[in-house]
Nucleic acid binder design. Sequence first.
DNA 1: CATGAATGAGCCTTCATTCAT
DNA 2: AATGAATGAAGGCTCATTCAT
Lengths: 197, 197, 197, 197
Amino acid sequence: MATTQLRKDAARNWDRIVAVARDLVDQGAPLQLNDVARRAEFGVATVYRHFATPEALLETVATPCLETLITHGRHALADTDPGRALEGFLSRVAEAQVTDAALAPVAAATTDSLPRTTELKETLAATGTTLLDRAREAGAVRPDLSSADLVPLMCGIAYAVNIHGGATADRIDTAHHYLALLFEGLRVTGTRACPGP
Amino acid sequence: MATTQLRKDAARNWDRIVAVARDLVDQGAPLQLNDVARRAEFGVATVYRHFATPEALLETVATPCLETLITHGRHALADTDPGRALEGFLSRVAEAQVTDAALAPVAAATTDSLPRTTELKETLAATGTTLLDRAREAGAVRPDLSSADLVPLMCGIAYAVNIHGGATADRIDTAHHYLALLFEGLRVTGTRACPGP
Amino acid sequence: MATTQLRKDAARNWDRIVAVARDLVDQGAPLQLNDVARRAEFGVATVYRHFATPEALLETVATPCLETLITHGRHALADTDPGRALEGFLSRVAEAQVTDAALAPVAAATTDSLPRTTELKETLAATGTTLLDRAREAGAVRPDLSSADLVPLMCGIAYAVNIHGGATADRIDTAHHYLALLFEGLRVTGTRACPGP
Amino acid sequence: MATTQLRKDAARNWDRIVAVARDLVDQGAPLQLNDVARRAEFGVATVYRHFATPEALLETVATPCLETLITHGRHALADTDPGRALEGFLSRVAEAQVTDAALAPVAAATTDSLPRTTELKETLAATGTTLLDRAREAGAVRPDLSSADLVPLMCGIAYAVNIHGGATADRIDTAHHYLALLFEGLRVTGTRACPGP
DNA sequence: CATGAATGAGCCTTCATTCAT
DNA sequence: AATGAATGAAGGCTCATTCAT
């Protein structure tokens, strides 16, 4: 989806560039604009016209994924069980991180190239914050987790999964596993201390 | 410490190279052999003779840290409380990861440049495995955590801390925080339901 | 002023393009047709249709200045004091050179893009030649200065002023200073040797 | 002349690079390091190793010329006739400017790439200042010329000569002509008013 | 007439590695 | 053993101009 309306042919080119970039990202190759141009069989400047920097292109590649997550976030906000809502949402995020190689670097970056990206990330972060606050208030998670930890922890899980390795299907399982572990840790543990009578 | 005995002057050079590399790593600078040579005031080839690749040099820089961790591991193995032993050990590992910039990339790498590195990493992994096995047997941690997850999880924590950011002292705190979370999650959770008498 | 009659809207575009170009020149920015188009909010091709090359645009920007100088030249030709006429005229030229950044490159160019520019430059050169001839005949300037030297010397003065630097007001003063020096040198010096009685 | 002692082969390469650059400058071609490398049949990086920027190379090309001028300056300082000394020196400078295409841009630049260049330019400027001061004190030149004008005026003359055009020999004549004009202008003009009896 | 996307040559620069001295 | 000059592929980016829409 282009920010402004493009001419039809330009839009086709835009799509092709993003598609090529998507392929490269999926292969784990570094995103170099010259390389993208060569593979898409465009002049370099064509690619540069559409995407001023590799980061801008990467963010564009990651955008649909971010948008999907936002949709999931919206559903989660509608959930009446705060704990389940948070866990479900983070589960989606973790899955996305290990499924879509474009997401992790964009999520981890402190500065964005595209305003649109900042917007999406902020929306997503706000959703996470709300869900966490609600869960905390409901006593579903420990109080000592700040919303500033959500992104780092999600990125950390994705990173851990990458190191663990494996095929995509396994990776999703691993991510769920690590997330479940984290969630165990997050549960309010007052009961755990229960010394008995 | 060189693998084989070096002539005295060569050993001095070796030390200087490693010291310069350590500085660069600490500054967060990329480890380029040319750069190291210039700063150490050696010819490039001298550096190349000692370290065939940047990775080899990086591993060498990380070696003392790995050795220290192994020592910690040995102490942990002597601890009679398996849960405390594991937690203490992983705590050391997490601290080291966020403290020493050379460690994370070496730990995360799937292939090593130096046999010595492989050796150290394997020793460390074996220690972790043993500690985990014991803790699991003692019922101190959940059974569904494989020793193959230890390195990924440690790296993931380090990565999360890096994204979270902050000064070194804060980073150590954050690492402890995340590790504590993980440990909560690892605890056998039957007790969490604590049904009372 | 367009060479041929333009449709009203085309004339408006033409004006806007020239205005933008004038701004760029005044800011000391390089005159790139793409850049002009973007700032004028036109398509590149629109600018290219009006001005085939950056030079053509630059010459167009310089045209009013050339025309003004021609007017000054006409007044000078009406002056009855040949020495004063020449000096006054060159003074205007020097001022224009350091005041209007578009003039110097156009004056210095050996070939012009627009016939109109050639015309104006030739008119101006002819005026200079006439004024110089008259001054020479009147004994107001040395005989060893060819009219072919006028343009180079004016450009040289402008260049010297640029190197000397300073704000616009200072630059005009400097230009006058250098021109005065030149004029001292141009005065017939036979009398200078006069040792007196 | 290299700043520090080079190995014999490196010195040969250094010389070849400078020679190629000299040729390019003489042809009026822009000095591009890649181009120099190609013509000298060196790898690009070899040229970059010797000269970090095109400016550094250009300054190196201009250095012998600057050194020669300094020598001339020393001779001029030994001259007992202050007027003749200044005129002779500036004459050399003007000749050099129109003879050696490397000189003008280096002289006109406000910042230098090589410390050596700054040194040479300062020495030369100091010489000019001294000669001008002496000439002024001796009443050989008008008091209203600052030493800050010397460089601009010399550059201006060179520029004027370039615009005037012509073969090298003619150019030198033209430069002398313009300089003579300037010098007429510089002469103390009290005598000029003398109309005789 | 107007548009603005596409072009692609070409410049600058860096870096890991080799090899003559 | 030590040196450090040389390499050259490769990446990043710009810009004047053309041409399909």
